[in-house]
Simulated scan of single mutants.
Amino acid sequence: MRLVASDMDGTIVGHDGKISPRTVEAFQRCLDAGVEVVFVTGRPPRWLDPLREQLGHRGTVICSNGAVTYNLNDEQVLSAHLLEHSNILAAREIILDLYPAAAFAAETVTGFHIEHGFAEEGAVELLAGAVAMPLADSLGGHDVIKFLAREREVQPDNFLNRVRPAVAHLVTATHSAPSVALLEMSMPGINKSVTLAKFAASRGISQADVVAFGDMPNDVQMLNWAGTGYAMASGHPEAIAAADQQAPAFEDDGVAQILEKRLAALRASL
Rank of each mutant, 00 (worst) to 15 (best):
G111Q: 05
I88W: 10
A102D: 05
A119I: 09
A101F: 05
E93P: 02
E93T: 10
H116N: 09
A101L: 11
G117A: 01
F118G: 04
L89E: 07
V109E: 13
T108F: 02
F104Y: 00
A90P: 07
T110W: 08
F118V: 05
V109H: 00
I94A: 13
R92L: 09
A103W: 00
L98E: 15
F118S: 04
I114V: 10
H116L: 11
A106G: 07
A101C: 07
A101Q: 13
F112D: 06
E93R: 14
A90R: 14
Y99F: 15
A106D: 05
G117C: 00
E93D: 13
I114T: 09
E107I: 05
L89D: 05
F104D: 00
F118W: 06
A105H: 01
A91K: 07
G111M: 06
A90N: 11
S86L: 12
L96Y: 10
G117P: 00
E120H: 14
S86V: 14
T110H: 11
A105L: 01
G117D: 01
A119P: 08
D97H: 14
T108Y: 05
A119H: 07
E115K: 01
S86D: 15
H116W: 08
L89T: 07
G117H: 00
N87D: 14
L96C: 10
G122R: 08
I88Y: 09
I114Y: 03
F112T: 08
Y99A: 12
A119D: 09
Y99L: 11
T108Q: 03
F112W: 12
E107K: 01
S86F: 10
D97F: 10
A91N: 07
A90F: 09
A105R: 03
L98Y: 14
T110V: 11
A90Y: 08
G111I: 06
F104E: 01
G122M: 05
F104I: 02
V109M: 10
I94F: 08
L96I: 11
P100L: 08
D97E: 15
E120P: 10
G111F: 04
I94R: 15
E107M: 02
F112S: 07
N87A: 15
D97L: 12
N87T: 13
N87C: 14
F118M: 06
G117F: 01
I95Q: 10
T108G: 03
G117Q: 02
